[in-house]
Design a protein around this nucleic acid. Structure first.
Length: 117
DNA sequence: CACTTGACTTATT
DNA sequence: TAATAAGCCAAGT
């Protein structure tokens, strides 16, 4: 299987949006998981960058993306400090102290979900 | 054109 | 176990 580690910037961003949109309601994923799914595990930062651009798009549930520890690392980028937590809790996710509770249970990995063959 | 910063992750000390 | 360093890639200054 030949892979293209170097995705086009625009494609990478677009893919990030796609994957984030694929995150089921009540679930969360991590930057690394998305990056890895896209074939750029080390480019987890770029995922965050992409999401920052996606903030203008209401169709991208960026609030479902947290860091690998389940921390709402991106909450500071939301319109309000608690917007991210509020949205997550509105979807049934328990967030406390800016941290997703039962993160392991709520964690949704695109690699697993899409590899359900 | 070079340097700094950033919604991260993994490895090493 | 916790703290620090390095790796990664893009965008802004």
């Amino acid at each position: 299987m030949n892979e293209k580690p170097r995705l086009n910037r625009a494609d990478f961003y677009r893919d990030v949006y796609e994957v984030v949109k694929l995150v089921p309601k009540g679930r969360v994923t991590s930057y690394g998981a998305i990056a890895r799914y896209l074939g750029a595990a080390k480019s987890a930062r770029m995922v965050g960058y992409a999401l920052n651009n996606c903030m203008d798009r209401a169709d991208v549930p960026a609030h479902r993306v947290v860091n690998r520890l389940g921390l709402l690392s991106g909450k500071h980028h939301f319109p309000t400090e608690d917007a991210m937590a509020e949205r997550l809790m509105a979807e049934g996710i328990v967030v406390q102290n800016d941290q997703v509770q039962s993160f392991s249970e709520k964690f949704w990995d695109p690699n697993e979900a899409l590899s359900f063959d």
